[in-house]
Structures are given as structure tokens and as C-alpha cells.
Design a protein around this nucleic acid. Structure first.
Lengths: 132, 132
DNA sequence: TATTGTTATACTCTATAACTATA
DNA sequence: TATAGTTATAGAGTATAACAATA
């Protein structure tokens, strides 16, 4: 069963990723939020929820903690007073750029047994599973 | 990053697996316990914990529920009175055999976009990641 | 001393209901 | 009426400490 092998391999790469984020104190959801804010502007909490498959009530504490940490700020949305625009700070950019670097290194390390050709082939087949 | 693709593909197959177990009312841990008891004899709670990476305190409720359901029984261990030997019942065998059949079908369905050759290649590469 | 099974407990992740302000 | 953010809360899954019985 492929699902079994997929789960075990995924546990390896996920574990490696989380280990690499321990010192930066970033959980997967924190990493993903900052990564999205790094490359997108004018993003709201609801948009993060949809992109990351996180329910709105569970995103509240995530954003509060990141704001308290000084890696993102909230700004009022002139177009829609219900929502707030989230923006990554200089400190947040520095943090996520370092995190991305470490994440790439941990991914390489966890899949080091594969050749470049195998990696490309693997990525293509995995996409066929989750994206049709 | 391969880890990202692995995680998304794994979420698809895991979701498909869990959906296929809804009617049989089996969680992944229940499936794994019964599957191990189907092909191994003289198994204890501690051995299940080690094989499935579940902590002993968390295995207690799992086994209690499966015993209450009548799919496994406990028997005193003559060699070591601290532990109990777990045994799958006829009802349990019937249940896990049906579950295995459905799990295989769900796995096939979730990875239907891949050819037989691709499946073999994918399994081989995934093993390289988690088993070296 | 070490191990097995167990209880109690806590922490994280995930999920739903319901509220307010705004659209 | 529908949506955004929020609070409160509940349910899984996972974690540690500590205990009695046995090795």
C-alpha cells in the first residue's frame, strides 16, 4: 500500500523540518503564515485560514502570538472595516528568510539518499496524487 | 521542497484511508493493532506500543475499547505475570480482513493516476527516505 | 533496580456554536 | 443576509509523572 510508505516518508521529512525549526521557535503554522506574508501583501486573517486550511477561531492565537513577537503588524483595512491587513515586519522577514534556508537544508538532508533525477520524478508523482 | 509534496500527498491517502474506515469504526491505531494481532501471536501491550510508536498510557484505552468490542481478548502470561497476552478473536479477524480489503481499495483509488510502473518506482523511493 | 500496566494529568491540534461589527 | 474576527468550549492525539505488581 502506497499510503503506508507515504505516511512513513512524510513523518521523516516532517520530523526533520520541525527539528530544524526548534531553535527559531516556529511551528509549521507559524512558518506557513510568515512565508505567505513574505510574498503577499494586503493579506487578511481569513485569507490565511483559507490558504492554510486553518479554522478562523484557531488562527486568532497564532496571529496574536506572532504580533506579540514583533514579526507581523495589523493595519486597518480602509476597504472593509471588518478585517485587518496583516503585514510582515523587518524582524519577521529576517526570521522567515533564515527559516526558509534551514527548511531547505533539512529537506535536502532528509531526502539525501535520492538523486536529482529521482527527486524530480518523485515530486512529479506526488503532485499526481494530490493535484490530480 | 520534497517534504511539502510528501505531506500533501500523504494527507490525500490518509484521508482516503480514514474515510474507508468510517463505517467499520476503526481509527488508524485500531486498524494497526488488529493488523498486528492478525499476523502475530503472544503479543503484549508493550510490544504494540513499541511497534506502533504509541506511549503505554495511551495504549490502555485503545485495548480496553477493542476488548469491550469483542475483537480481542486478554490472557494471563505464564512467563511474566506483569504482562498480558493479547489475542484477536474470530470477530476481530473478520473485521480486520474486511478493513484490509477496504484499505487496499481506498489506496488504489487515491493513487489511481499512477501507472503500475510508477507505483513501484514511488514505493522504492519512499523506502529510501524512511528506511535509508 | 528495571519493566509492565495503569491512573491522573496536561498540552497541542482541531472542531463547533455563538457573538459583534460590518458589508 | 452574509462575512470577518473573536470568544468559549469540546474533542481528539500525544506527552510526562508516579504508582503497584512483578522481574
Amino acid at each position: 500500500m502506497l499510503g503506508y510508505h507515504l505516511r512513513r516518508a512524510s513523518l521523516v521529512t516532517t520530523g526533520s523540518f520541525m527539528d530544524s525549526m526548534v531553535e527559531l521557535e516556529l511551528r509549521p503554522v507559524d512558518f506557513s503564515v510568515l512565508n505567505l506574508l513574505l510574498t503577499n501583501t494586503g493579506v487578511t486573517s481569513r485569507q490565511l485560514c483559507r490558504a492554510l486550511n486553518v479554522l478562523p477561531p484557531n488562527m486568532v492565537a497564532v496571529i496574536n502570538a506572532l504580533e506579540k513577537r514583533g514579526v507581523l503588524t495589523r493595519h486597518q483595512n480602509a476597504r472593509d472595516k471588518r478585517s485587518e491587513i496583516l503585514q510582515i515586519t523587518a524582524s519577521g522577514k529576517k526570521l522567515i528568510l533564515q527559516a526558509l534556508q534551514q527548511a531547505i537544508a533539512s529537506d535536502q538532508a532528509a531526502t539525501a539518499k535520492l538523486t536529482a533525477r529521482e527527486r524530480a520524478s518523485l515530486a512529479r508523482m506526488l503532485k499526481k496524487i494530490y493535484a490530480g
